[in-house]
Simulated assay, not measured.
Amino acid sequence: MASTVRYDEVEVGQEIPAVAYKVRRVNLVMYAGASGDFNPIHWNERFAKTVGLPDVIAHGMFTMAQGGRFVTDWVGDPAAVVDYGVRFSSMVVVPDDDAGATITVGGVVEEKLEDKRVVVGLTATSGDVRVLSKARAVVQLS
């Protein structure tokens, strides 16, 4: 499947509209099963609080995956992402209620490269807190 975003239709500075991803405890349990990371800070509130956390927190890689999901949904082809990296700047606290937490991811085209590739800078927040920093993806466009 080729990218649905065309290189000649993308401009530096172009914003990619933000998307909000809901996170509930059940998502963290499913992610733990898929990743093998069963650290109790990601599912056990009592344990998380005994180690000084405000509540259960999302896995860092789960948070990073939401940024990757944002990019692949935008470009229309997971194979079009040729490089992706982030730094973790804060935790996503996931309360045990019906609302859970929200990770909001947005992007901007920062640079056009050779061979129809672009650099997309991402912003990711939960509430008013930035949870990923230096988040960048290089994407191969059509």
Score class of each variant (00 low, 15 high):
Thr4Arg: 12
Asp8Tyr: 00
Glu9Asp: 12
Val12Met: 05
Gln14Met: 11
Pro17Gly: 08
Pro17Ile: 04
Ala18Phe: 07
Ala18Met: 06
Val19Met: 14
Ala20Val: 12
Tyr21Cys: 13
Tyr21Pro: 15
Lys22Pro: 15
Arg24Thr: 08
Arg24Gln: 07
Arg24Lys: 09
Val29Asp: 00
Phe38Ala: 09
Asn39Arg: 03
Asn39Thr: 07
His42Leu: 11
His42Pro: 13
His42Trp: 11
Glu45Phe: 04
Glu45Gly: 01
Arg46Thr: 14
Phe47Val: 09
Ala48His: 10
Lys49Ile: 05
Lys49Gly: 10
Gly52Arg: 14
Gly52Tyr: 08
Leu53Val: 11
Pro54Glu: 02
Pro54Ser: 02
Asp55Trp: 01
Asp55Ala: 03
Asp55Asn: 09
Val56Cys: 01
Ala58Asn: 11
Phe62Thr: 11
Met64Lys: 14
Ala65Asn: 12
Gln66Trp: 03
Gly68Trp: 05
Gly68Met: 10
Val71Asp: 10
Val71Ile: 15
Val71Met: 12
Trp74Gln: 05
Val75Asp: 12
Asp77Leu: 06
Val81Ser: 09
Val82Cys: 06
Gly85Pro: 08
Arg87Ala: 03
Arg87Asp: 12
Ser89Gly: 14
Ser89Lys: 15
Ser90Lys: 10
Val92Thr: 08
Asp98Lys: 12
Ile103Gln: 06
Val105Leu: 05
Gly107Lys: 04
Gly107Asn: 09
Val108Ser: 07
Lys112Met: 02
Lys112Leu: 01
Leu113Lys: 11
Glu114Ser: 12
Glu114Cys: 00
Arg117Leu: 03
Arg117Met: 09
Leu122Ser: 14
Thr125Lys: 14
Asp128Val: 00
Arg130His: 03
Arg130Gln: 12
Ser133Pro: 10
Ser133Cys: 10
Ala135Cys: 13
Leu141Met: 04
Ser142Thr: 03
